[in-house]
Nucleic acid binder design. Structure first.
Length: 476
DNA sequence: TGAAATGTTGGGGCG
DNA sequence: ACGCCCCAACATTTC
């Protein structure tokens, strides 16, 4: 090296003067165990944080009404929490490809970090952004969320293709989980140094600019059912681990009980990470109580279903809009708008189905067993395209998640990965007798003076018709 | 993570 | 005592 050439590292340091790191929040709306945040703060440069709401890019899967309501609350919570670290969260509405590019150029940014998503539109945008940034010699750092190091590298051992069946996927992932990794409930952070840029930016990019809330105020009733943000997510988890998990296995199928974790929306928005939940389960799995360990394993298996849905969405992006099994063309399904509407409004006359649809409308959520049976009624008995059901759930569920939604609906409709066999058709009356014996759930969600309409569909004959339809389809 | 149809078994009533 | 029928309870098969 020539004596007067500065050491390369010094050169870099020098060029970093006045430069900032852009931290792009997506579905990781938390401070603790957030690798992107940790990385950003470790760069010894001021951090500029953004959230970008991109309904156009995400179409037709831009967030539904219930989801936007949750997002609004979750962002306020994050924004407040971030202030403790001297980080302002700037909320921007627009296409992420353009916005990242313009922010990088306007605000002296030389590195960008984010946590990946798996939705096809998002993957496309993220890859475009990365390519653009690489061209401009901007450092790009991306993290993969969840328990899998990388979905692209997790393939079947026999022929190195993506797992299409849950159980082998589950066994492998479960076996490879490293219980000595610990993901802290709370992380120690160094505080951000506020950049000169922040003065220009201050208070211009408010959450309200995102226009997340519908003007007709449907969402206001949701307030009484949910709390948001990282703190709430951990409270829910603690409550589940301490008070509920022992009843999880025996009670989780009974919709009148409060036996499930209710973490789905928190997990979807990344208010809490899957690894943090795993960390809370590990002591139970490894402890002396067989009951605790069985319960924790059972719950973990359900969490791995989430991971599997993400994995499938990554490997088979077309499943957001088309069935995994492409035999099921649009013309396989019936087009019955009237039936669809009665289903949506909970006016089928079938008690447990109507109760579920009311719970959904009222709270933005529905017990999982009831989700399965209302979906079975729509797709199998009514023969209506699963996508109509998926759209309705997408707009009304606070935990709407493209990967889980697409997989779940196709599973029930019998056209997805590892799908329920075509002949598995739920009888909502039988399900009611089994899982809501005393009608505690139905009575809770249905008005006592509700006119008991006749059931709009004959369960027996529609079942038989569905069997014929599917059987014919499989032959062809 | 289903339901219905069909098959099997065994106990009890009864001629 | 025996055979017969009925039927509940459970098991297996089928869609």
């Amino acid at each position: 090296m020539f004596p007067h050439t500065p050491h390369p590292e010094l050169q870099i340091r020098h060029s970093q003067n006045n430069m900032n790191t852009l931290l792009w929040f997506q579905r990781d709306l938390r401070l603790h165990h957030n690798p992107s945040l940790d990385w950003a703060l470790s760069q010894s440069k001021p951090v500029i944080a953004v959230y970008i709401h991109s309904p156009q890019e995400d179409a037709p899967w831009s967030e539904g009404a219930a989801s936007r309501w949750w997002l609004q609350q979750s962002l306020s919570s994050l924004k407040k929490d971030l202030l403790e670290l001297n980080i302002n969260l700037h909320c921007i509405k627009g296409n992420s490809v353009e916005k990242i590019n313009s922010w990088v150029n306007k605000h002296n940014i030389d590195s960008v970090v984010w946590t990946n998503r798996v939705e096809p539109n998002r993957v496309k945008c993220e890859n475009t952004i990365e390519a653009q940034l690489n061209k401009q010699n901007i450092t790009v750092k991306r993290f993969t969320p969840g328990l899998l190091p990388s979905p692209s590298k997790f393939l079947t051992l026999s022929n190195e293709t993506a797992y299409r069946v849950f159980t082998p996927f589950y066994r492998r992932l479960r076996a490879e989980l490293n219980f000595s990794d610990y993901y802290p409930k709370s992380s120690q952070h160094i505080k951000n140094t506020i950049s000169k840029e922040e003065i220009k930016l201050k208070d211009k990019y408010l959450i309200s600019n995102l226009d997340l809330l519908d003007t007709h105020n449907w969402h206001s009733k949701l307030n009484k059912y949910w709390t948001h943000g990282e703190g709430s997510a951990h409270k829910m988890l603690d409550h589940f681990i301490e008070d509920k998990i022992l009843n999880y296995i025996p009670d989780r199928d009974y919709p009148a009980t409060d036996a499930t974790s209710s973490l789905s929306a928190h997990l979807h928005f990344g208010e809490i990470s899957l690894q943090q939940v795993l960390s809370a389960l590990i002591p139970l799995i490894q402890g002396n109580s067989i009951n605790h360990s069985v319960a924790a394993e059972g719950f973990l298996r359900q969490l791995i279903w989430r991971e599997y849905a993400q994995y499938i969405m990554y490997h088979f992006p077309h499943t957001a809009l088309k069935p995994m099994n492409e035999k099921y063309k649009p013309n396989f399904w019936k087009d019955d708008k009237e039936m669809l509407q009665k289903w949506q409004q909970g006016n089928t006359g079938i008690t447990l189905v109507d109760a579920g649809m009311k719970q959904l409308w009222e709270t933005g959520s529905m017990h999982n067993r009831v989700r399965m049976l209302v979906a079975s009624l729509l797709t199998k008995n009514m023969g209506i395209n699963w996508q109509h059901g998926a759209n309705w759930f997408w707009d009304t569920l606070v935990d709407a998640d493209l990967a889980n939604n697409s997989m779940g609906w196709q599973w029930v409709a019998g056209c997805g990965v590892d799908a329920a066999p075509y002949f598995r058709i739920f009888n909502p009356d039988t399900q009611s007798k089994k899982f809501d014996k005393n009608n505690a759930y139905s009575n809770y969600w249905l008005q006592p003076d509700r006119l008991i309409n006749d059931e709009i569909i004959d369960l027996g004959s529609s079942r038989k018709e569905a069997l014929v339809r599917y059987k014919t389809q499989i032959k062809n």
